[in-house]
Simulated assay, not measured.
Amino acid sequence: MTGFASGRGASEGYAWDWELRSVNGKGLDLRLRVPDWVEGLETALRARLGKGLARGNVTVNLRLQSEQRAARMQVNEAQLDDVLEAIARIESEAMARGISLAPSRPGDILAQRGVLEMASSEADTTALQAALLADFEAVLDGFLDMRRGEGRALEEILAGQLDEISRLTSEAAEAAQSRREDVAQALRDALARVLDNSEGADPDRIAQELALLAVKSDVTEELDRLHAHVTTARDMIATGSPIGRKLDFLAQEFNREANTLCSKAQSGALTKIGLELKTVIDQMREQVQNVE
């Protein structure tokens, strides 16, 4: 979901610079820094970005300058009143507490946000807005192209990781088959211990406990689900639609099955494969955070 694009343009007596960048995010968070006196610009940009993006923290910066004579500055009277009132309250409170403050200087007051602002000579910014939006299309296209390029690289990485998970899952099935006799012997030993100490015990209860021991050592379901998750993940990637959140959830399910496999292993070889699976799955989860 990372991306960057920039561009320059000029029209209607103005010149501007665009900068569009994004980093990973669970949802879509749009942060726009554009002149608010160009009526409707931010709303139009948000609508356009929402059509092409589904995930990521996206920042849009627009620096807009007049190509004509230096823009005239004017004092925002309402903001000035608010700042002066706040200063008066602070000075009054300081005096009441015996604190001496340095006198406020005009430059300090003018430096407060919103007190001094550019006076727009444009009563109607419709034409300027249209020019800005038309120029933004090329910037956005470059931005999306960069993200698509990253997506293709991520697709190859994820495909390789899924292949490795599939290979390790098949190895786990072979290791589980190899340890079958050891597990069977362990169950026979457990049965012998139970029978030696089962005088007066409920036969049904004994059968339940033995069945539980057998279930705890069987990893067939975990291996079947791992194979199914690999197939599902490949199908998701092949769709090409926004799948980041779905893949993130599926990666958690991969990890859950690998954890269960390790807990049921009862074999050094199977435990080793389970740990390798967890390593690959963790690597995949990190990459999935980059997927839209």
Rank of each mutant, 00 (worst) to 15 (best):
L226S: 01
E171D: 03
E19Y: 09
G142T: 04
L20G: 15
Q65I: 04
S170K: 00
A238R: 15
V183R: 02
D224N: 04
G40A: 13
A153L: 15
E286Q: 04
L41F: 10
G268T: 11
G268F: 13
V34Q: 09
G149K: 08
M1K: 11
L162A: 09
E93N: 09
D182W: 09
G25W: 04
G268I: 14
R285A: 00
T169I: 01
D29C: 12
V34G: 06
S267V: 05
I87H: 08
I90N: 10
R105P: 01
L213R: 05
A119T: 06
F249K: 01
N61P: 02
P106D: 08
E253R: 01
S92G: 03
A10L: 05
M236C: 14
M146H: 12
V139K: 06
R234A: 06
D141C: 01
K216W: 11
L191V: 13
L277Q: 03
V291L: 12
L223D: 01
G52F: 02
Q177T: 08
L45M: 14
Q161T: 02
T2S: 10
M284A: 11
D235K: 15
A111M: 11
Q65S: 14
A119F: 13
A172G: 01
A214R: 06
R152A: 10
K216A: 15
E292Y: 13
R46F: 02
T239E: 11
E292M: 11
F143G: 14
